[in-house]
Structures are given as structure tokens and as C-alpha cells.
Amino acid sequence: MLVMKNINKIFQTADIQTHALRDFCLQVNEGDFVSVTGPSGSGKTTFLNIAGLLETYSNGEFLLDGEDVGKLNDNGRSRMRNQKIGFIFQGFNLIPDLNLYDNVDVPLRYRGFNGKERKRRIEENLERVGLASRMKHLPSQLSGGQQQRVAIARALATDPRFLLADEPTGNLDSEMAQSVMSLLEDINQQGTTIIMVTHDAQLAQRAKRTIQVKDGRVSELAIVTPHLNQAIA
């Protein structure tokens, strides 16, 4: 469970202060699929970065699985990221020097799994995204959609409890976007909590819950129950 209470984030640059998040309050339950929409510059990425422990916050309270994130040091935050959180970004963010196998391997190394376990997880997850046959390829040899699927495989390899996705389909054509979305829905079905930032209203509607961020604050649009969701489908 993720709980944010009155989180504020102020970016201080030379001459101006940007209040990216203002008294941001949100609770995301286990197994939820939350889509986040909102105008550009409203603080969506900032929220996701704080949720993913990539960014600190100015004040407020943030509990991840009951643990007060504000009290963790760099090592603790790294461990938490590694064990609980998976990331998917808009820019595909694979390491260009490493082949697909080694890319998926990265978080598993930091987790400290043994060789056999790593191999099993890498193969299983590349299989899951349909790229098992291209393990030895470099990212540059794949299409954008394929790269995004590798990033998903990598995010899933550690069995994260939370999957944070910042415009995962932003650079993909609609067909590719649909297939990535289906993949995310599958993953959510299997119990992973997903928070996804998107500009695509249609995709946003497919999530179980939709929130809108405006001016650094949350405004809940509608709570779509799974029941209703099914009825629509």
C-alpha cells in the first residue's frame, strides 16, 4: 500500500521556485491499477518519481508498505527500489551497451540472486513479452515497441509489488500502445499494483481508477469499479 499525505515538492532554481506538488494526498491500495492524467507541467512525473523513491520531497509524509520513506538513507532507498518497485519510462531507458539478456539482468544482480535464479527469471520474462529469441540482441537492433517490452520484462523480473509507468506508450503507435496496455492489464491481474501516467484518455479509461493531477494537486475523476469496467467491456 502507498500512502502520501500532504506531500509538497518545491524545485528551487536560481531565480524561481516551482511548487510542483502542493499538499498532494493519495492512497493506492494493493492490486490497484491507477492511471494518472493531467495537463503538462502539472506534476505527474514529479509525483511518480517521488513514489518511486527517485526524488526526495520537501515535506509531508510518505509511507510505502507502512515504512516511512523519509527516514531511509541512500542504501535503504536503493534496496526498496530494487525489491518493491519496477519502472517503465517513456524514453525506453535500456542500457545501449548491454544486450537484452544483460539489460534484464541488471536489477537481478543488484538483488543478489544466484546465476541460476537470474537465468530463470530473465528467460521467463523475456518469454512473457515475446522476445526470448532475441536475447543476444542490442537495444539498438529492436523497434521502439520491442524496446518498451524489454523494459517491461526487466521491471517484472524482480517481481515488484508496484509498477510505476511514466507514459509507457507515449512513443508508440496506437496498435503497439494497445498491446503494451494489454500486457500491463495482464500483469495487474496477477496482483501487481500499477500506477501509470498517460496523456491518452482512452488508455486511462482502461485502468481501474483514474486520477487527475492539476497544479500539483490530485482531483479524482471517477472511481471505476472493476464491476463497472467489466460491464463496459
Binding site: 518511486g52 527517485l54 541512500d74 542504501n75 532507498r77 536503493s78 534496496r79 527500489r81 530494487n82 525489491q83 519502472f87 531507458n93 542500457i95 545501449p96 551497451d97 541488471v106 536489477p107 543488484y110 538483488r111 526487466r154 524482480t158
Partner: peptide, 16 residues
Amino acid sequence: APEIGLRQALGASKST
């Protein structure tokens, strides 16, 4: 730098 940022997101600490 992008790779380093990514590695941090994937669980690398500063000491790592």
C-alpha cells in the same frame, strides 16, 4: 549519466 540514473532506478546504491 542516463545509464547511471537508470541503474539507480533499478536498485543500485551510490556505493554499488
